[in-house]
């Protein structure tokens, strides 16, 4: 048996014209579109159905907490794309540093979300209070789980990147993280801003 290393066959696949890791990431994103898209579409459907009542419920969400979280995620996306740029230049240490900043911002996002959940549940708006709040907790909770998953993956990739290993993965986790950001960009106006309608 030969001791020499070989690049995994899947990583050199040419039929799709792009590295398999990135192709796989795009497949994940595509499936996530259906999951989050279905959730958002269902929310819009019921929002149209129960217009005024749901608008009055949306007034109880904390606009500035949601805005702060949007700011945090946009900033984390900026760091993620800078990490990708650093990885592309072969600077694994810088990429790792930027990824750790992204993780830190992800943790900040979760802290703000935890504060929101606490204050809303304390005020009597729990997941079972009404369909609006069920949608709110399911959508933001599922999104939060994606943030946690992204942070864990990012930590593993950043650790590797700091040793200059597997730098191509930085781009893949970047694509995933930007998608999580895009989902929040849509959740923010739905739950926090549209109360005036």
């Amino acid at each position: 048996m030969s001791n020499s290393f070989h690049a995994p066959i899947a990583t050199g696949r040419e039929s799709a014209g792009l590295p398999a890791g990135r192709l796989g990431t795009w497949w994940v994103v595509a499936s996530e579109i259906v999951i989050f898209g279905g959730l958002i579409a269902s929310f819009i459907m019921y929002r149209l159905r129960h217009g005024e009542f749901w608008a009055s419920q949306a007034e109880h969400t904390k606009l500035y907490a949601g805005a702060l979280n949007t700011f945090i995620l946009l900033t984390s996306s900026y760091f993620a794309v800078c990490a990708h740029q650093a990885a592309q230049q072969g600077n694994g240490k810088k990429a790792a540093k930027l990824l750790f900043r992204t993780i830190l911002l992800g943790a900040g996002f979760l802290c703000v979300k935890a504060y929101e959940y606490t204050s809303e549940i304390t005020a009597g708006y729990g997941p079972l209070s009404d369909l609006f709040w069920s949608f709110y907790y399911i959508s933001t909770g599922l999104h939060g789980l994606h943030v946690i998953a992204g942070m864990i993956m990012m930590a593993i990739i950043a650790k590797d990147a700091s040793k200059e290993n597997h730098l191509q993965r930085v781009e893949c986790i970047g694509i995933y993280w930007h998608f999580v950001d895009v989902v929040w960009i849509f959740l923010f106006p739905l739950f926090y801003i549209a109360s005036g309608l």
Binding site: S4, F5, A7, G12, A87, Q88, Q89, N165, L167, Q168
Partner: peptide, 19 residues
């Protein structure tokens, strides 16, 4: 194309061209 590293680190093009 990947570099000569046993497990690939980066496509070689990463080192030379913009994102």
């Amino acid at each position: 194309g990947y570099s000569s590293s046993p497990y690939f680190t980066l496509p070689q093009v990463f080192n030379t061209t913009p994102v």
